[in-house]
């Protein structure tokens, strides 16, 4: 078991899958010669050469569409978006073409593509570069979305995504790239649609995904130390498919739920999770479900305010105490 960073875990996943399957191709802006805008693909060009690791022009609709077309003929492209925010110029390709082709062809055509890159705020870059489109994309049947929070999950989910025969969109987080964690040396995958209880507790369930998991874990510690509350933290890991059973099992145990995500509140992932809990575990609840999301505005540039706009430990603790009141 090695301790490696989230970035290294993603790279290791891609390297292993490149070795395992010669149809896997890495493609995106600056992924090859530049070694990746965020260095996730560093060294891969040297190891695998320009046929497998391909630099594209700044042309998201073009190269994402090209990857989708290639995947229909059996290539397994892993496409990097420098930011998921840039997916918006390729939206027709990502939604209409990748997401619908299997359905509209009555199951005749598959699209085994992975699109990956960071999707997060909190980096002081303003509204255009801070989108978190997991809820938007996961609302389309035909598309799968995962949001790893730890190096272990990043590697396991990335490998599962590459082997999956459907379009899988992996949403990473630049703030997590340097986070370190234990990752097994042997081959493993984290199946899509399996949540993970990152902390066991009895008084309150926090459901989160992506970096909100890390925030929630820190909040859980404070809640335990300073308020004597035992908090369970459920990391969704995968948005679609969604592990409903793990969420419900935790709520049935703690009878209270707080949902934390870095999305804006309207139609966020947690709107779906809240609906799930009230429809399938209504009688289990001892208090209304609460949410902590980003404050509902385009992402503000000012760093001091952005830190307050997004869920942070203080806000999560305060909201948890309201659920527990």
């Amino acid at each position: 078991m090695a301790v490696i960073s989230y970035r290294e875990a993603l790279r290791a996943a891609m390297r292993e899958e490149l070795k395992r399957d010669d149809k896997v191709v890495i493609m995106g802006e600056e992924v090859a010669q530049f070694n990746g805008a965020y260095k996730v693909t560093e060294g891969l060009l040297k190891e695998f050469g320009p046929k497998r690791i391909v630099d594209t022009p700044i042309s998201e609709a073009g190269f994402i569409g090209l990857g989708i077309g290639a995947s229909m003929l059996g290539i397994r492209p892993v496409m990097e978006l420098m930011f998921w925010s840039f997916s918006y110029v390729a939206f027709d390709q990502i939604v209409n073409n990748a997401g619908n082709i299997r359905y509209m062809s009555g199951g005749l055509i598959n699209c085994p593509i992975v699109i990956r890159g960071p999707a997060n705020g909190g980096t002081n870059v303003g509204a255009t570069h801070s989108h978190t489109p997991e809820a938007i994309l996961a609302s389309h049947p035909g598309i799968k979305v995962v949001c790893p929070a730890t190096p272990y999950d990043a590697k396991g989910l990335m490998k599962a995504a590459i082997r999956d025969n459907d379009p899988v969109y992996v949403m990473e987080n630049t703030i997590l790239y340097n986070d370190k964690g234990e990752v097994p040396d042997e081959d493993y995958i984290v199946p899509l649609g399996v949540a993970d209880v990152k902390r066991v507790g009895t008084d309150l369930t926090i459901v989160a995904h992506g970096r909100a998991v890390i925030t929630s874990l820190k909040a859980a510690e404070i809640l335990e130390k300073e308020h004597g509350v035992s908090v369970e933290v459920v990391d969704l890991r995968s948005i679609r498919p969604l592990d409903e059973e793990t969420i419900l099992a935790s709520v049935r145990k703690t009878h209270r739920a707080l949902l934390v995500e870095e999305n804006k509140p309207f139609c966020g992932v947690d709107a779906q999770v809240a609906y799930l809990i009230q429809s399938k575990a209504f009688d289990e609840l001892d208090a209304p479900i609460h949410r902590v999301s980003s404050i509902d505005a385009p992402q503000i540039y000012c760093k001091r305010m952005e830190d307050l706009q997004m869920p942070n430990v203080e806000r999560v603790v305060a909201e948890a105490l309201k659920v527990l009141a």
């Binding site: 569409g65 059996g74 209409n96 509209m104």
Partner: peptide
């Protein structure tokens, strides 16, 4: 669609198939 006959559609959004066709050629 008839992929068994190398026919990959049949696409509804104007011009959206051009990158896909380029990708088929890439493959």
């Amino acid at each position: 669609f008839a992929p068994d006959k190398n026919y990959w559609g049949g696409h509804g959004i104007v011009g959206g198939q051009a990158p896909l066709g380029t990708g088929l050629a890439y493959a």
